[in-house]
Computed example of a mutant assay.
Amino acid sequence: MAGTDEGGPAPGGKTLAVIAQEAGVSVSTVSKVLHNRSDVAARTRAKVQRLLAQHGYPGRNGPAATALAPGGLIDFVINELDGPWAVELIRGAEEALDAVGMGLVVSAAHGRGSSARRWLDSLAARRTLGAILVVPELDQDQHRELRALGIPFALIAPVEEPPAGVPWVGATNWPGGLAATRHLVRLGHRRIAVIGGPPHRLASRARVDGYRSALEEAGLPFDPGLVRHGDFTNEPAYRHALDLLRLPDPPTAVFAGSDQQALSTYRAAATLGLRVPADVSVVGFDDLPFADWVTPRLTTVRTPLAEMAALAAGMVLRLLGGGQPAGTRVEVASELVVRDSSGPPPTR
Results as ranks from 00 to 15, higher is better:
Pro236His: 04
Leu245Gln: 05
Ala253His: 03
Val254Asn: 02
Ala262Thr: 07
Leu263Ile: 08
Asp259His: 03
Ala269Gly: 13
Ala241Pro: 04
Pro250Phe: 12
Asp249Asn: 14
Tyr238Trp: 08
Leu242Asn: 13
Thr271Lys: 06
Ser264Thr: 02
Thr271Phe: 11
Leu242Pro: 06
Leu242Ile: 13
Thr252Ile: 15
Asn234Tyr: 13
Gly257Ser: 01
Glu235Thr: 13
Pro277His: 01
Gln261Val: 07
Phe255Pro: 03
Pro236Gln: 05
Ser258Trp: 10
Thr252Gln: 13
Gln260Met: 04
Gln260Pro: 03
Ser258Val: 10
Asp249Val: 13
Ala262Phe: 08
Thr233Trp: 07
Gln260Tyr: 09
Ala241Asn: 00
Leu272His: 07
Ser258Thr: 12
Gln261Asp: 14
Asn234His: 12
Ser264Leu: 00
Leu242Ser: 06
Leu272Ile: 10
Asp259Thr: 05
Leu263Val: 08
Gly257Lys: 08
Arg239Tyr: 15
Phe255Leu: 06
Ala253Arg: 09
Glu235Gly: 13
Gln261Cys: 10
Thr271Gln: 15
Thr233Leu: 01
Leu263Trp: 07
Tyr238Ile: 10
Thr265Lys: 01
Arg246Tyr: 06
Pro251Leu: 12
Pro236Trp: 09
Ala278Asn: 09
Pro248Gly: 06
Gly257Tyr: 01
Leu263Glu: 02
Asp243His: 15
Val254Ala: 07
Ala241Asp: 02
Gly257Pro: 10
Leu244Gln: 00
Leu247Lys: 09
Asp259Ala: 04
Asp249Trp: 13
Ala237Asn: 00
Thr252Ala: 15
Asp243Asn: 12
Leu274Ile: 06
Leu247Asp: 08
Arg267Val: 14
Ala269Arg: 01
Ala237Cys: 02
Arg267Trp: 06
Ala268Met: 05
Tyr266Val: 05
Pro250Gly: 02
Arg267Glu: 11
Ala268Glu: 07
Val276Asn: 04
Ala278Phe: 06
Asp249Gln: 15
Ala253Cys: 14
His240Met: 14
Pro277Glu: 09
Arg246Glu: 12
Ala268Ile: 13
Ala241Val: 01
Ser264Lys: 00
Val276His: 01
Ala253Pro: 13
Ser258Phe: 04
Gln260Arg: 07
Ala262Met: 02
Ala268Pro: 06
Asn234Phe: 14
Leu244Lys: 10
Gly273Ile: 09
Leu242Gly: 07
Gln260His: 10
Ser264Glu: 10
Asp259Glu: 08
Thr271Trp: 04
Ala270Thr: 14
Leu244Tyr: 06
Arg246Cys: 13
Leu242Phe: 13
Leu274Thr: 01
Thr252Arg: 10
Pro250Trp: 04
Val276Met: 04
Asp259Asn: 00
Thr233Gln: 11
Leu247Thr: 14
Gly257Arg: 06
Ala253Phe: 05
